[in-house]
Design a protein around this nucleic acid. Structure first.
Length: 291
DNA sequence: AAAGCCTCCAACCGCCTGAAG
DNA sequence: CCTTCAGGCGGTTGGAGGCTT
């Protein structure tokens, strides 16, 4: 029953790859494609297990891998995506062409995590430590607040999705929320707005619906707007908000029937919060280097 | 000069999920 | 339906090289 064992582990080499092994693997994959990783080492004449070959190829030998240090923009992107996706390195890597999950994981563990810690942010939650005293510079306060806002948006959206799933989908069986809905959101125009914003750019969806301002997305026919500043967020229209929440509810209903709608739902959920993240600290080494 | 410490990152380990038998 | 495996993923490790004392 079942399959035959992948490979007997005796006589298999472990540890760092040599140049000859790399060459064999590259040449084989160029000519044959990797096919089944399980059978590749034997066919290619390598004394490695398939898993090791796959790892070596995907993390190091692949021709489309971008070597060299991460740019500031890439680091920003990693932090932003980590705030949304958490430690889903593969998902984050998918948004950075040429970078591997391993590379991003290493970047996070060796650089970015420390920087966030230095800025008084919990790298897991992207929010300030509760015991954090007023020892950071004013600019750090701003960064901290922005990161916390982003995380708040994410957490509440997740909570609402959970609530929605329970409300609309039991019984019959719960609809599994699309695990990549934040990723899809990130890839939407909203994500682009977020990525492109510079300093004070904002995404605010508490403003009146269907206004003439720039449209950034829609859910169930409800238009969501990008506003030029944060002023609108403090003058939330209850009616408008109710309309948005109705749209969310409507989305949840259709969500149970059509999984593709989940991205729109998540989009709306996340858009329901003002976002204002300033990550200038990445460009200003002096701040975190003083830690 | 050298010992000790630190940082970085390639590679391994173990777990999970979906597919094969 | 159950067992086993391949592939994929995130967490962790260990060695090489750099830095400090």
């Amino acid at each position: 029953m079942g399959r035959t064992p992948c490979c007997d582990k005796k006589d298999l080499k472990k540890g760092p790859w040599g140049p000859e092994e790399d060459e064999i693997l590259i040449n084989y994959i160029k000519e044959q494609g990797h096919g089944s990783w399980r059978s590749l080492p034997k066919l290619a004449g390598l004394r490695r297990c398939g898993k090791s070959c796959r790892l070596r190829w995907t993390n190091y030998l692949r021709p489309d891998i971008k070597r060299g240090p991460f740019t500031v923009d890439e680091e920003k992107l990693v932090i932003q995506l980590h705030a949304i996706l958490g430690n889903r390195w593969a998902a984050i890597a998918a948004q950075l062409p040429g970078r591997t999950d391993n590379e991003i994981k290493n970047l996070w563990n060796t650089h970015l995590k420390k920087r966030l810690l230095c800025m008084g942010l919990d790298p897991l939650k992207h929010e300030p430590f509760t015991h954090c005293g007023p020892t950071t510079a004013p600019r750090s306060y701003s960064t901290t607040r922005h990161m916390a806002q982003w995380e708040s948006a994410r957490l509440e959206a997740e909570a609402r999705l959970s609530k929605g799933s329970l409300f609309f989908n039991s019984p019959p069986p719960l609809v599994k929320p699309n695990p990549d809905y934040f990723l899809r959101l990130w890839n939407s125009e909203v994500g682009e707005s977020f990525r492109n914003m510079n300093g004070e750019a904002k995404i605010n969806c508490r403003s009146p619906i269907s206004s003439s301002s720039m449209k950034c997305g829609s859910v169930s026919g409800v238009t969501v707007d990008v506003c030029p500043n944060m002023a609108g967020s403090s003058s939330t229209s209850t009616t408008a908000r109710n309309q948005i929440e109705d749209a969310i509810d409507a989305s949840f209903s259709s969500f149970s029937n059509e999984s593709e709608d989940s991205s729109d739902t998540a989009l709306q959920l996340l858009l329901d919060f003002p976002i204002n993240i300033d990550m200038c600290f990445l460009e200003d080494d002096t701040t975190w280097l003083q830690c």
